[in-house]
Design a protein around this nucleic acid. Structure first.
Length: 832
RNA sequence: GCCCGAGUGGUGGAACUGGUAGACACAAGGGACUUAAAAUCCCUCGCCUGCGGGUGUGUGGGUUCGAAUCCCACCUCGGGCACCA
């Protein structure tokens, strides 16, 4: 047989798959009535076409391909589409640099990526390819914006927002990582701007509840989302400013500590601050404080170590549980965005309040005893007491366990109309407007007479206009295009101006998986019957860096579309797999560090089959792994071994039938058993554990065994039959990982289309062993190993163990006090 | 500080529900083939050793006949959150 030539055979089979449209999965004629039990939607996160694919993508798409091909061979109708997250800053920044239009640049990049995916042999249904920057696509992104707007889920408000000075645009909370821009790492600043938001907070509860609908998501992704949403149960309690007849509600998670509230705090942004101090001697210092607090970047305010600051307002609030008058301060550690923007301060049991009290000389009153501290210890405490205990200094609630007291006090406040049980979330609304060019324009028009008017659906898409200069200047570059901005009000026909901000690209990627199901629909984003047929995604695969951002936004979007009656499911991704990253030379691959390994070079040198195999063989897919330059050689050598082994078997043996043959024993039986063991191992490793590395090593073991047994087996008719069966099985098992070489070998074995073959099944009859190696231990240490009949019983095993000379050396002169027999494994003799 | 995840040979990693630690591969060493090299095929490969054995899965304890695996305490690395009342 010829030498293994990956370039030739890979091109050949890629051509066949393209011509025969092997991986296209057409929509059923009647999707509403079609059987959904055999469909499988396998999806990898769509790439961002900033350049070409890197190794992380290769890993992602190869993993998805293994699952897709495996399910296809197991009788599923596999839905495996691909697209491009094509709007966004990198294309725009590159456009500014090169002068090319972002659309042209994106087209070049998506073309490259498509080529790369073809050359990797990924089983994609190319008839459904899409790009989010295509007007046919973003028309519907805008359509959803209007639907959100109609429902009050998209709104505009003036707020202090995160501003990235480098990207010259605002960012959502989720896009700020440790005070810096998630994309470029620049420290974010604060700006007060009128911006568009999606009311994701309305769905906080559902986002938490519906975790129960997910089948298999990594626990840590769920935990990260749960923490991000940050649900807290507690109470809303009303404090009264008697002099001014104002009620101020606060949120607290510790209603049990109400009797320990010795002062009261307002966020600097709180609207009542002005009313409290207006016309008093406290007016000026408080105003100064508020002004300076608002000038501070949000990042600085978030630093927990910062010393507490504040200003007395001169007013007092009445604690509803005991009628006490407590002083009201303004302090910037109280956040306007959380709870009610006002808190009761309990310094004895909250560290932040404690620090404030010590600095301003305010009372500290213990109301929960415990940890050795009693009712009178307030003045001498060195830190807040946060443990549970019994109530003290709390009137008729004294002596009650504090957790129970919290419930009782909340209930009592309810009957007195002074408060109620309440829930608060850390989650903030999703800021979706961006002051940049390369995104979907927000379909809104401002009219002096009619106000904020949505663009009528029939006028969609609002096309992204041409501009002369994309450079960010703090407002969208589109604003410079007067022709675009000036328009007629859809309501009154009068002169009006268009919104010039574009949408966050995470909006685009929040629904792309739905569009795949019906990508050419011009009348609607998708047909409900069709989307309900294919969705939800059965297996989603991507990087863990999207644990909060994309995955939470997509879940939110799906829930809104469900409420709009557009889809019949509430969760988009039933199963999620998050892959680990690929490191190189001890660091994450990045252009700036110059440690990028280019996949194309390796495809050229070794072929896609080798690269795919190696990238999965490197380690467990969910863990981070380090790229080894020499490692890939091993995978290439292995495929060469497979090629020569199967080649020799083709030359020296004849095709066999079903593999259902009798063997008399010896080497033939052993290899036959190994073949069936390998089927079992590879099948469970792919389908149940997603451990591709161990599946591949099992196939390697089979090849090693076959090499050693080959020459002997070629001597007999029986041996040749087993070898031929082994070769065919080997090719079938390796196919999901390295499909080109397998397709070629399958053809050389005298067959036609490997991907139409059913996945092999392990036959129990051939798995049975006649004997096995029994381990004989003395005091838990291995002293001997002997072959024993598989059916040997406990007594028989004990007799064999006692007869072992090697074991006897360690039992001699000692008393056997216990004998442990584990049939199929070992005997342990315990001596004293 | 709080919440996750991970520590196993020179290297990447394997070990199902507690039962032979180091599968598979890389690197290294040896042999066969070859005029030679490459390629290929075969063998060795945790550490110590007097070849009986001893020791070994981040550290220290514990449970057990038996622990990489379970429990407690600690160390190191990676990730997430961090004034959210």
């Amino acid at each position: 047989m010829d030498r293994y030539n990956p370039a030739e055979i890979e091109a050949k089979w890629q051509q066949v798959w393209k011509q025969e449209r092997t991986f296209e999965a057409p929509n059923p004629d009647d999707p509403a009535a079609a059987d959904r039990s055999r469909k499988s939607y396998v999806l990898e996160m769509l790439p961002y076409p900033s350049g070409t694919l890197h190794m992380g993508h290769v890993k992602n798409y190869t993993m998805g391909d293994v699952i897709a091909r495996f399910r296809m061979r197991n009788g599923f109708t596999v839905f495996h589409p691909m697209g491009y997250d094509a709007f966004g800053l990198p294309a725009e920044n590159a456009a500014i640099k090169t002068g090319l239009h972002p659309a042209e640049l994106t087209k070049i990049n998506t073309g490259n990526i498509e080529q790369q995916l073809h050359r990797l042999g990924v089983s994609i249904d190319w008839s459904r390819e899409l790009a989010t920057c295509d007007p046919e696509y973003y028309k519907w992104t805008q359509y959803f914006f209007l639907k959100f707007f109609e429902r009050g889920l998209a709104y505009r408000k003036e707020a202090d927002v995160n501003w990235c000075p480098s990207c010259a645009t605002v960012l959502a909370n989720e896009q700020v990582v440790q005070g810096a821009c998630e994309r470029c790492g620049t420290l974010v600043a604060t700006r007060s701007l009128a911006q568009w938001f999606f009311r994701i907070t309305e769905y906080a509860e559902q986002l938490l509840e519906d975790f129960s609908e997910l089948e298999s998501w990594p626990e840590r992704v769920i935990t990260m989302q749960r923490n991000w949403i940050g649900r807290s149960e507690g109470a809303e309690v009303v404090f009264r400013v008697a002099e001014l007849d104002i009620d101020i509600p606060v949120f607290t998670t510790r209603p049990d500590t109400l009797f320990g509230a010795t002062f009261f705090l307002l966020a600097p942004e709180h609207e009542l601050v002005e009313r409290l101090v207006d016309g008093t001697e406290f007016e000026n210092p408080v105003r100064d404080y508020v002004t300076s607090a608002r000038l501070k970047p949000l990042v600085d305010r978030a630093l927990a170590e910062r010393e507490k600051t504040g200003e007395f307002t001169g007013r007092y609030a009445v604690n509803p549980v005991n009628g006490e008058q407590i002083p009201i301060y303004v302090s910037d550690y109280v956040l306007m965005e959380y709870g009610t923007g006002a808190i009761m301060a309990v310094p004895a049991h909250d560290q932040r309040d404690f620090e404030f009290a010590r600095k301003f000389g305010l009372d500290v009153r213990v109301v929960v005893s415990g940890g050795g501290a009693g009712p009178g210890d307030g003045p001498v405490l060195e830190a807040a007491l946060e443990e549970d205990g019994e109530l003290v200094n709390s009137g008729r609630f004294d002596g009650m366990p504090n957790r129970e007291a919290g419930r009782v006090i909340t209930e009592w406040l309810g009957t007195e109309h002074l408060g109620r049980a309440a829930v608060s979330y850390r989650l903030r609304d999703w800021l979706v407007s961006r002051q940049r060019y390369w995104g979907a324009p927000i379909p809104i028009i401002y009219c002096d007479k009619c106000g904020t008017v949505p663009v009528p659906e029939s006028d969609l898409p609002v096309l992204l206009p041409e501009v002369e200069d994309y450079a960010p200047r703090g407002q969208s570059p589109i604003a410079t295009n007067e022709e675009f901005v000036k328009t007629a009000c859809p309501a009154c026909g009068g002169p009006a101006r268009r919104e010039t901000d574009t949408m966050d690209t995470f909006v685009d990627s929040s629904w792309y998986f739905l569009r795949y199901t019906d990508p050419h629909n011009g009348r609607a984003p998708f047909e409900p019957d069709i989307v309900d047929y294919w969705m939800p995604v059965d297996q989603y695969i991507g990087g863990v860096e999207h644990a909060i951002l994309h995955l939470m936004y997509a879940r939110f979007f799906t829930k809104v579309l469900y409420d709009l009656g557009l889809v019949g499911f509430r969760e988009p991704f039933t199963n999620l797999f998050t892959q680990g990253m690929i490191y190189y030379k001890g660091a994450k691959m990045s252009k700036s560090k110059g440690n990028v390994v280019n996949p194309d070079e390796h495809v050229e040198k070794y072929g896609a089959d080798t690269l795919r195999l190696y990238i999965l063989f490197m380690g467990p897919p969910e863990l981070d792994v380090e790229w080894q330059d020499q490692g890939i050689e091993g995978s290439f050598r292995f495929l060469g071994r497979v090629w020569r082994l199967v080649g020799e078997i083709i030359e020296k043996t004849k095709p066999v039938g079903s593999g259902d043959f009798a063997v008399t024993g010896g080497a033939a039986a052993i290899l036959l058993r190994k073949t069936h063991q390998t089927i079992r191992k590879v099948t469970t490793d792919i389908s149940e554990r997603y451990r591709f590395n161990t599946a591949i090593s099992a196939v390697m073991e089979l090849v090693n065994d076959a090499y050693l047994a080959k020459d002997g087996l070629l001597e007999s008719e029986e041996g040749r039959g087993v070898l031929r069966f082994m070769a065919e099985t080997l090719v079938k098992l390796l196919d999901p990982f390295s499909p080109h070489i397998c397709a070629e070998l399958w053809e050389k074995l005298g067959h036609e289309r490997l991907w139409l073959e059913p996945w092999p099944a392990a036959d129990e009859r051939f798995l049975a062993h006649e004997t096995y190696e029994l381990v004989i231990q003395v005091n838990g240490k291995v002293r001997d190993r002997v072959q024993v009949p598989a059916e040997a019983g406990r007594d028989e095993l004990l007799t064999i163990a006692r007869a072992s000379e090697r074991a006897a050396r360690h039992t001699e002169g000692k008393q056997v006090v216990k004998e442990i027999v584990v049939p199929g494994r070992l005997v342990n003799l315990v001596v004293k």
